[in-house]
Amino acid sequence: MRSFVRAGRGPGLTEENYNTMTTASKIFVAGATGLLGGQIVSNLLDRGASVRALVRPGTDGDKKAALTALQARGLELVEGDITDPVEKLAAAIGDATTVVSAIQGGPDLIIDGQVNLVRAAEQAGARRFIPSDFAIDITKLDDEDNVMIGWRRKAAAAYGDTSLDVISVLNGAFYEVMIGFMGLVDWEAGTVSHWGDPDQPLDMTSVPDTAAFTAAVALDPEAKGTQRFAGEVLSMRQFHQTLERATGRGLTLKNLGTADELRAEITRKAAATQNPFEYVGLQYQWCMVTGKAKFDNVDNAKYPQVKPGSLEDFVRQAAPKA
């Protein structure tokens, strides 16, 4: 079984070394039509990498247009699905040496699909795999703490015997999720809600910066184990203050209860539904506000060419102003 490891902080790569990193090896990306996957592909192409992406047959609309734009920059597309038979998926991976998964979905994709992708990568002769982890510190959590992270941990256990070098990229919470999916910010009511200690530090990174770090890891032949990156480390009190500065709006910081009360609310919601997506946002919040999923250190210094943007700058562009 593959265990999650804490990678030590190496000396890092200089700008000069980064610019000379090999781009001769082909990188295969699954999930390229998603927001993160598409930006990973774009960053890899920016670095001159040879990139092949898996696309489901019949993809159209905005996703097709985005892929067409990436094709114009050198992206190679192959049709298929990560649930295809291993032999067919291995043929799609072809001569790629690194396989990146940026897929999202339920356990059929995150567990079964990713295990299938690993087996296909092995058969194709790939050497490295970057799974769709992209989250808070899943190495410090238990499977039951968060259903979606539990799926990722189960996938890692299922392909734990792989011959591939598995490199996990963790980014904390996405800025986009913190001001959206989490339900923490109610712009209409003018409130920022939180559970637990408002001064607990939280790791956060934007989607574009996560993609840039992922591309850097994929192109780094020395990258191993679990890599942790953060655009900002802010408490909920600082998060609230940042939103006020960025928007020029007065927002009320609203305490919803203790971490124990949050856990009780999760238990109540989980008992009332068969759909884990109705309470997984609360699970993410519990993992963060308790400090259980806090990074012990970050690896930003390994890739100084990636300069993550601040939450304040992100909110200035994304949020409604006063």
Rank of each mutant, 00 (worst) to 15 (best):
A216K: 07
D220H: 02
M182Y: 14
R152G: 08
L219P: 02
D142L: 10
R228Y: 04
N146H: 15
S235W: 01
I167E: 07
G183W: 12
G231L: 01
Y175C: 05
K140S: 10
A156D: 03
P201K: 01
K224C: 02
P221Y: 02
A189R: 15
T205C: 07
G190S: 09
D165C: 00
S235N: 04
G225N: 13
A230C: 06
M204G: 03
A189C: 06
H194C: 13
H194W: 07
L202G: 00
A135F: 02
P208L: 07
V207G: 07
W187H: 14
G180Y: 09
A223V: 05
I167S: 08
A218I: 12
L202C: 06
A155Q: 07
M148L: 15
I138W: 00
G150Q: 05
T214R: 12
K154R: 15
D197P: 07
L184W: 15
I136E: 01
A218T: 09
K154E: 14
D161H: 12
E232W: 01
A135P: 00
D197G: 08
P221V: 09
L164R: 13
D145T: 08
E222Y: 00
W195C: 06
N171R: 04
A155V: 06
G183K: 15
I149L: 11
D161E: 13
P201L: 04
V166L: 10
M182T: 14
A156E: 06
E144C: 06
D142W: 03
R153H: 01
P198S: 11
G180P: 10
N146F: 06
D145M: 11
M204I: 09
Q200W: 03
P201S: 02
R228T: 04
W187Y: 15
D199W: 03
E176F: 13
D142E: 14
L184G: 03
G231E: 01
E144N: 12
D186V: 11
E144V: 14
G150E: 05
L234K: 03
T214H: 11
E222L: 07
D209A: 06
E144G: 07
A223S: 15
D142S: 13
T226L: 02
V192A: 12
Q227P: 02
G150F: 12
A215D: 09
D220K: 06
D145L: 11
D209K: 01
G180I: 10
V207E: 08
R228K: 14
N171E: 06
N146P: 04
S163Q: 14
Q227M: 10
K140H: 06
D165N: 10
E176S: 13
L234A: 03
L170C: 06
I179H: 11
F213T: 07
K224E: 13
D197Y: 05
R228L: 13
P198R: 04
A218Q: 10
V233C: 04
A211F: 09
D220P: 04
P201D: 03
M148W: 10
V177P: 00
S235C: 04
E144L: 07
V192M: 11
D142Q: 14
L184V: 13
A215I: 11
M148D: 08
T214S: 14
T214F: 10
D165M: 02
A155T: 04
F229I: 03
T226S: 14
G225K: 02
V217E: 04
S193N: 15
D199Y: 05
G150R: 06
G172H: 02
S168P: 00
P208M: 02
D137I: 01
V185Q: 05
